[in-house]
Nucleic acid binder design. Structure first.
Length: 270
DNA sequence: AGCTCATGGCGAG
DNA sequence: TCGCCCTGAGCTG
């Protein structure tokens, strides 16, 4: 379940559990064994998120780059016993806390130069204080690609994924097919400001909530999405259900290999 | 028990 | 644009 908010939340949790402590580092699965052996017994120096990338520093200038991809998970577990070791790529633990990494797209031991190179490929991250939204705009306003495509491009806004894309486009009442070069600077700024407002809630709560008070299913009498867990959203995975604002059935279509959700009535305007 | 899908991203063609 | 990688939850049978 990884969009940027999850990664930032994990970075903070890792810091608070392991910061400054000597840690056990292993790869029960074996696929990261060589690197884990190098890190075992070192000091956990810090963890930081850039978009969907997590960088964990051990000792001095030894970084593990983690990217969860679509199915990867980093979970807190009981210290001591390892369940299903065959899928645990990386495990970090002290006497008090343990965390396990399964199914990551990336888990690499890198140095500061490689870290800088990865960060250089990323656009501004709405969750970072050092983000410069204008870097994203430079790409958007020169592009004939649609805003739906551009928002999934990590060079435009690092950390945004399929849920935040759908939700922020809905909240801004923006048609997903609007070409970047037809978007006004004002609309881009509003889009960015909305992401910068929404995503910290995701970090704080560990779930994505985007629905304003007056539009909740309780307030409107309309169905929430069927998923049992997860936050309250306007359109993501609500295809066929009535739009929480206008009542029209929410649309879905496959776009660039992913499901794109939107309301054909609220988001008519480009 | 098996199948499908998922909040990503890459490389081949 | 497609296939592929990694895992596990939530279905179906």
């Amino acid at each position: 379940m990884p969009e940027g908010h999850v990664i930032h939340r994990l970075a903070a949790e890792l810091e608070s559990a392991f910061g400054g402590r000597t840690v056990r580092v292993t790869s029960p699965q074996g696929r990261f064994h060589g690197s884990a052996a190098l890190l075992d017994g070192t000091t956990f120096a810090g963890a930081e998120a850039y978009g969907k990338n997590l960088f964990i520093e051990f000792g001095h200038d030894l970084f593990v780059q983690v990217h969860l991809g679509l199915i990867g998970k980093l979970r807190w577990v009981e210290p001591g016993v390892v369940q299903n070791p065959d899928t645990v790529r990386l495990r970090i633990e002290t006497e008090a806390d343990a965390v396990e990494l399964r199914g990551p797209q990336t888990c690499n031991l890198i140095g500061p130069d490689e870290l800088a190179a990865v960060v250089a490929t990323l656009g501004p991250d709405p969750l970072r204080a050092d983000a410069d939204p204008d870097r994203g705009w430079q790409r958007v306003h020169r592009s004939g690609r649609t805003i739906a495509s551009l928002l999934m491009d990590q060079r435009v806004a690092a950390g945004v994924g399929n849920i935040y894309r759908a939700e922020v486009l809905f909240r801004q009442r923006l048609n997903p097919d609007t070409p970047g070069n037809e978007l006004s600077a004002r609309k881009w700024r509003a889009l960015w400001a909305d992401l910068a407002e929404l995503m910290p809630y995701g970090v704080r709560d560990g779930r994505i909530d985007t629905v304003r008070e007056e539009h909740t299913p309780e307030a409107t009498g309309r169905e929430p999405r069927v998923d049992r867990h997860g936050g309250e959203v306007y359109v993501y995975r609500r295809a066929g259900l009535p739009c929480l604002v206008c009542g029209r059935a929410v649309s879905v279509r496959e776009f660039e290999g992913r499901n794109l959700y939107w309301c054909g009535k609220c988001q008519r305007r480009r």
